[in-house]
Design a protein around this nucleic acid. Structure first.
Lengths: 343, 343
DNA sequence: TTGAAAGCGCTACCAG
DNA sequence: CTGGTAGCGCTTTCAA
């Protein structure tokens, strides 16, 4: 099996304490000795044993704070939260505690307050959050990072912060995927309406951009007629969709770039356009599954929500326990096209 | 944090050794005392600490044997092997060793020999394999299980064995997904050819069955003209496809139910049918990505190969270390439709 | 049938 | 600057 500190100590002719101090750069060790110890460790491929470390960490547990929109409001975050709980379970034996705070949607003030709370009151050692893309959030993240509190963003990223990495979809790519899919779905020809979420959310903006890019590059006969913000709200998307498709009967397709799917589909059904107007949307909730089964929606594009909850905590645990940082600052989850048979 | 054996011992007024024996049913403990200890543990929600156990296991490491087709032959299994290595990495600090043996394709004799080898020579404590669906394999698996060596199958399952569970696609469902996708792709109308792999592989057979089922249920105007076995061989699939599409020019679609994708596509290109004949295939290799990009293939359906390597080992480690068995005997990986933009 | 003690790998602490 | 020791939770062994 692997080499241990004890073995290295024997070979180097010093005590385990000295090896520990040397390898972890804790200071108080002769630089000659330190060099020798490190050389031996290197040669033998020393890797600290996780179980051994865990037992020690347990005496002084570390806390990871998580901030995300409340699962009560969008089904989507229920799955994210499941991932958080799975990670919590997996790492609690390693002396890692997880504290979850929910915000109402992507409310900025709320998020700022919770970051402060986790930092000042809970004394967290690391943080994972579905970030509002705002400079104030970015500044707080950078501040935490400087206090030696690593931060990972998930689901939606923030610009210009010192976060360790982002876990979630490449939303431009997701939008492009939708565009290409729409091209195939309507035979490269037709008039399309787009109902999006909130433009202040980077992810929603990118999903629209990617979609438009593909149409421009490859599908000259496809025409995007309308783009609207529905703020992830079913009533707004219902009202807008109903009005739009009632007025313009030449529309053949609908691209739903975020939540509010149920409202839009309800409108189509009431107009008897179900199945006639081709619909592509995102994510995978019980409501959406039903709409796939009755052929109101042709495809939905998913993004591994459970992983989005799980992975940031795994990454942070790896940093806290093993001082191991991820390779890339982008940890993209898969873009998963689903149809009525693959859900 | 969690309760420990030590705390339970104090409360019960006995030694840690006694608590250990009681909770793990090792015998040699007064039944009254045992009952009392178990009651306390239950009430306090005792869960053994993984790190603590790991350190002990390490003294007498456990071995998990893995058998799968060599990655040299199909690119697909390179990714599976990556998953195996990831799991190996993750669990080696817990005293778990992983021994991998490669077979040539799905050769029965080869697989039987390797099972024996892992059992007799390597004295494995658990096994994970991409099973050949044969009664002899099933019998060996059942034998191992009776020797207290749990077995998990992945990628393709075996009938009537005592394996703990299967990790991989629901291939009927994957076939149905392909059928529905084809329906959308060719507008519910057209003549289709199918080139499959080996009918003795359960997964390949099911992919064809699911496909045919959906067409029969929902697409009366789609017609399957030919079904062939290409034995995962590019030359055979090339020859067959070329001959077929040269002869019958009314064919509009091709369903490739397993490997041999490159050969078939090469044939289409030579016949100048690239992009005209709609192609759906499985899995995600560099070759397939290229064919998606140049629009020879419309969709490919993937099955989480990395997870297929990783998950069985995680499940087996959980059994060996924590005596925890999976909920279901089917641990299905996701069915992931990809187009040229989402790869 | 039970308890006491050692030891897995690691870190923290104290004494020198 | 260094060594020794204790202790995290668990299992194992030996002695009683």
């Amino acid at each position: 099996m692997g080499v241990t500190i004890k073995q290295i100590a024997e070979i180097a002719g010093v005590s385990r304490g000295t090896v520990d101090r040397a390898l972890n750069n804790r200071g108080n060790v002769n630089s000659e000795v330190e060099k020798r110890i490190k050389a031996i460790a290197d040669k033998l491929g020393y890797r600290p044993n996780k179980a051994g470390k865990a037992l020690v960490t347990r005496r002084n547990p570390m806390k990871i704070g998580v901030i995300m929109p409340s699962p009560k409001r969008t089904d989507y975050f229920e799955k994210v939260n499941l991932g958080v709980q799975l990670a919590h379970d997996e790492f609690k034996d390693f002396g890692i505690e997880v504290i979850v705070k929910f915000t109402k949607g992507f409310d900025l003030e709320n998020q700022l307050k919770l970051i402060d709370e986790l930092y000042s009151e809970h004394k967290i050692n690391a943080m994972s959050l579905a970030a509002v893309n705002d400079t104030q959030v970015a500044e707080k993240i950078t501040y935490l990072t400087e206090q030696n509190i690593p931060v990972v963003t998930f689901n939606t990223d923030v610009d210009d912060s010192k976060r360790v990495c982002f876990v979630g979809n490449d939303y431009i790519k997701a939008g492009r995927t939708a565009g290409e899919l729409m091209g195939v779905l309507i035979g490269g020809e037709g008039k399309i309406a787009i109902v999006g979420g909130v433009y202040s959310a980077k992810s929603h903006k990118h999903r629209v951009k990617g979609f438009l890019d593909v149409i421009q590059e490859f599908y000259p006969k496809m025409q995007v007629m309308n783009i609207a913000e529905a703020f992830d709200d079913d009533i707004i998307s219902y009202t807008y969709t109903k009005e739009l498709f009632a007025k313009d009967t030449s529309l053949t397709a609908l691209y739903l770039a975020s939540a509010g799917v149920y409202g839009a589909c309800r409108a189509l059904k009431e107009l008897n356009l179900q199945g006639k107007v081709k619909v592509i949307c995102f994510d995978d909730t019980p409501g959406i599954e039903e709409l796939l089964l009755d052929r109101t929606i042709a495809f939905t594009i998913c993004q591994e929500p459970i992983k989005q909850g799980y992975e940031p905590i795994k990454i942070l645990a790896d940093i806290l326990l093993n001082d191991t940082y991820p390779q890339s600052e982008y940890n993209y989850t898969q873009i998963i096209i689903k149809n009525r048979e693959s859900i």
